[in-house]
Design a protein around this nucleic acid. Structure first.
Length: 363
DNA sequence: CACCCGTGGTC
DNA sequence: TGACCAAGGGT
């Protein structure tokens, strides 16, 4: 394929169809996007769709207009603002990266691939995106969209995991020296709006003449993904304790692992075996954070994580102001949170489900 | 390298 | 409605 024709057609399409996004400058613009904005948006966009990211991006910029502001704030505040977005390691790395950029580089993002890759939360994709979009360097940006577009352009029919290197080579060869930032965003916009996973709109595609998969009629079937494994079910019981003044008992999760450093509703361990009333041989009551008259809420809260499904029973309990916490509840990590403050806390989506389910009202 | 790591948009 | 899976990185 003629690479020049490909990039020329794509850029011409992008000039017309580029979506205005908060972190994006207009195509063919003389200005470059702010590296802080590009970095922040790219971290948020990892495995997350544009529509979901936009309000979070606006909130972050409003609270922390510069990387200095973000570096100066407490991690806890970042986690609060990140709550609901998922993959919370991104938030911890974001904060660490901001501090590193300020300490090592005086708040100015480095431009070399080596230096960018050394920053927490920045991998091959994000480093290339920052170089291309913020610094106008001809870096080859390969994300899930580009993998799909390239697999179709060349009708690559082997399993995706076996041809990742080949796709990177093809993608690098397609990347133009001019307007690399616009080109990168054009490829990703194309994948997100035209060359979509299930039913690609080939009749609207600016590079349909170059697409081998379209000629063969197999575009929708590419790329070939490995079959997914079934998710195991984990079960447990959550204890929603409401104090007489309406405050709810929450607990900070451990520093590593699932939902690290986020707040949680105290609960039993989440067990592999869906056997009610028993977990590792211990009774459910052994995980209760207080002694009270527990009330079972009918039904379950269900939630699907990346690698397992969760089904939780919820029990509610009312306690007085002077109720002592039980030893098993890790009291050093427990906090009473006023009802009105709940929505702004670092509560993951699953915990918000549990609380609103147990309270019988939205947060 | 395989696995861990969230959530909700999308059809 | 449920299944797919997204602008990936860390270990």
């Amino acid at each position: 394929m003629e690479n020049v024709a490909h990039s020329a057609r794509l850029l011409k399409w992008y000039d017309v169809h580029a979506r205005p996004l908060p972190w994006r400058v207009a195509p063919n613009s003389n200005r470059r996007a702010d590296p802080y904005h590009v970095w922040l948006s790219e971290i948020m966009l990892q495995q997350t769709v544009v529509k979901t990211v936009i309000p979070y991006f606006e909130t972050f910029l409003q609270n922390w207009p510069t990387v200095h502001d973000l570096a100066d704030c407490a991690l806890e505040d970042v986690l609060k603002r990140w709550a609901g977005l998922g993959y919370y390691a991104r938030a911890r790395n974001l904060h660490a990266c901001a501090r590193m950029v300020v300490e090592r580089y005086g708040g100015v993002f480095p431009t070399s691939e080596k230096e960018l890759l050394a920053l927490p939360g920045i991998g091959p994709y994000t480093a290339a995106a920052i170089r291309a979009i913020a610094f106008d360097q001809p870096a080859s940006v390969v994300d899930g969209n580009v993998e799909r577009v390239v697999a179709r352009l060349y009708a690559l029919k082997k399993p995706l995991r076996d041809i990742k290197v080949l796709i990177r080579q093809k993608a690098a060869r397609l990347t133009p020296a001019k307007r690399p930032g616009d080109y990168a965003q054009a490829m990703m916009d194309l994948g997100a709006t035209v060359c979509t996973p299930k039913s690609p709109a080939c009749d609207r595609c600016p590079v349909r003449e170059n697409c081998a998969a379209r000629q063969q009629g197999c575009a929708a079937a590419l790329p070939v993904r490995a079959p997914k494994k079934a998710k195991p079910l984990r079960t447990g019981t959550a204890f929603l304790v409401v104090r007489d003044d309406g405050a709810v008992l929450l607990r900070q999760r451990p520093a590593k692992g699932l939902l690290a450093k986020m707040l949680e509703v105290p609960a039993t361990p989440w067990c592999r075996k869906p056997e009610d009333g028993d977990c590792f041989g211990a009774p459910v009551e052994a995980s209760a954070p207080v002694e009270t008259n527990w009330q079972c809420v009918p039904g379950f809260v269900t939630h699907s994580f990346t690698h397992f499904d969760l089904r939780l029973e919820v029990r509610t309990g009312r306690v007085g102001q002077e109720q002592p916490l039980l030893h098993q509840a890790f009291p050093e990590r427990c906090r009473w949170v006023p009802r009105r403050r709940l929505a702004g806390e670092a509560l993951p989506g699953v915990m918000r489900k549990i609380i609103s389910y147990g309270l019988g009202e939205p947060l």
